[in-house]
Design a binder for these strands. Structure first.
Lengths: 204, 204, 204, 204
DNA sequence: TATGAATGAGTCTTCATTCAT
DNA sequence: CATGAATGAAGACTCATTCAT
């Protein structure tokens, strides 16, 4: 009544996000959302078509950010052997990820763990797939640029490395790492990964 | 009537496994299992006490195999720097994992992805936790044996590496890799990981 | 649709009361209530949280009346030997009971006979217990006031006399006594009981 | 197998009696009886036609004893005013009841409290009815023999007095009175009741 | 915009009993 | 005499969604 409409809309979204976070998409009850929002169940349907739309709306900003991050990552800046000798490049990519994680903590949790039953239930796989394709493409271009390096790496290996990104995000979120812990981890991971890739690609 | 009893029991298990695989434990309906098995819903309860018991029975062999693998892995054979210079040790561990994956493809999928709501819903986390603890313990012992190496690695990094095992299994299963592909991947992963760890531990 | 909402609520209550009366709380089916009310089973749950709530709502007025009657009865007016020589006092108490019975015929039947399985299933015992305690307390006070009387009566005897109240109510209800019959019975019961108590307490 | 058949039959009866006592007729599960008896569910049906037959068989001796007690009570010995001046007669009747209670404690509990849903669920009422009829008949005969006494007592009053018997039994059982307590109560009840009836019948 | 009412399909599990072997 | 398998009905309750007002 006295609550302005947009307020209600926001309130539904916030409570829904809490519920989704706690019980997952499928086991979140519209009834409960309505109850906690202090409105009628059916009134929710004046703001959203259905449960899935609420879920999608919650994840909308995150999805945008992810898409942006992915396309940024896919630029041609990285096509240099320096990527594997100086920390700068990988660091820059990882920092993007950290930003994502820190800005969209809850939403990432939803997307990665709680989306079963929603229209985003396969999003995690899709991203990994796209990451893999980008990775393969990257290796191909590098080989063209630096014929001496070895890129004889199985598609699946690239795939596993790609999925690592999401797994790491997932773990960071699950364990509620603070900024310092994240930074420490990233430097370790870069050191570890750089050495690994150099070995595989027979650089130097 | 005409179907022999053990047949039906097996049929229930197989159909249940399919359903669990497709929809997850929680969203699998006993009604549907009965329907697809061509028997009465209530008749299922002559073979199993409840839904969870069916799930547990399906996973029973896998759980045993996992426990065995873990205890084998936890031996002291690995306490040598050779672990990081020759492929033999890691290879042996990874081959154990491969055996697991190839023998219990479907069941692993269930355990890793589809167990929410069942009594095994936290098993994945538990294993990662145990793996992490084993990893930290391992680093400590190595440091005692080889004081020159560095083990200044964050717990979280060890945790991520531990969870890698399960993630890799998960990916192998999801992508239905054949034996050759798995072998190829493993050699790559060993090469990659060995280089990474050597770098981190500052082994020459 | 065409039926107004409060109608339906009342209808559910009435039909539920009939069903409870016929089959008892436990053996009354929500399905059947819905069927007889001409509504959907699930729609009942728009009016009541669960079966027990329906039962409690039906008994709500009766419970209030009983509590009031009990507290009225527990006054100190009765602390006189006249209680056993003139009819007035007992008559007044019994008339209270009659009023209760005549006003809450059906509900009393539910409470006394049909509440097994509901949250009121022990109410009968509780009342008898409270009545017994009140009776014992009464005898003690009387002895203090009139030391010559005998109150050497077993607790169990007081208990049986207390449970009589409820049994009498129960019988009146079961046999659908009219007002005249009730009045007749009461005068008989007072005559009978007064003589009995006088004898036991050795009054004159 | 090694258990003789009659043993099994007895075992079923004993376990069933326990279950009926604990959960009542309706809420006792044949499955549980079979389980506790260590036999198959369906095997019970080789010994008894159905659940009700088990219940009836358990109560068979009690029913016989009740019928005998009732017919004994209905003899002509009691047709004397002495019944209300000496304790002997009533005492004899009450002692019969005590014997019943002490010999068939469990069975009476079943019959009075736990028979809902069985073919004996109305037995309590039936007995009270027969008791009432016997009481009315008794009063009539007394009036013929002793025209001076008053028998102007309502049918319902006789009914309540009749139901008292069963209520008292019920209370004795519920409270697990020992022999001494029962005897004490009975003498109190006789004193109370005799005085009451004398008053009502205007004897002396 | 907001509401209360309504719906039908769905959840897992238990029940007493029957029947062929 | 004993068994395991089978059945259909029933239990209370929840679900997301729709609709008339």
């Amino acid at each position: 009544m006295q609550t302005k409409k947009e307020n209600i809309r926001q309130q539904i979204l916030e409570i829904a996000r809490d519920e989704f976070t706690m019980h997952g998409f499928k086991d979140t009850s519209m009834r409960v959302i309505a109850l906690k929002a202090g409105i009628t169940l059916s009134n929710i349907y004046n703001y959203f078509r259905n449960k899935d739309e609420i879920f999608r709306e919650i994840l909308y900003p995150l999805i945008g950010a992810i898409e942006k991050t992915l396309s940024d990552h896919n630029s041609n800046d990285n096509l240099t052997l320096d990527y594997f000798s100086t920390d700068d490049y990988q660091s820059r990519d990882l920092k993007r990820m950290v930003t994502l994680v820190e800005n969209y903590k809850t939403e990432l949790k939803l997307l990665l763990f709680k989306s079963s039953g929603s229209s985003y239930e396969n999003y995690r796989e899709e991203i990994t797939l796209r990451n893999t394709e980008m990775g393969l493409e990257y290796l191909k271009k590098m080989k063209e640029k630096y014929p001496s390096i070895s890129v004889d790496v199985s598609t699946f290996f690239v795939h596993v490395m790609s999925s690592m990104w999401l797994n790491i995000m997932a773990e960071i979120i699950s364990h509620s790492l603070n900024h310092e812990q994240i930074t420490k981890f990233i430097s370790e991971y870069i050191e570890f990964g750089t050495a690994g890739w150099q070995k595989l690609m027979k650089i130097i």
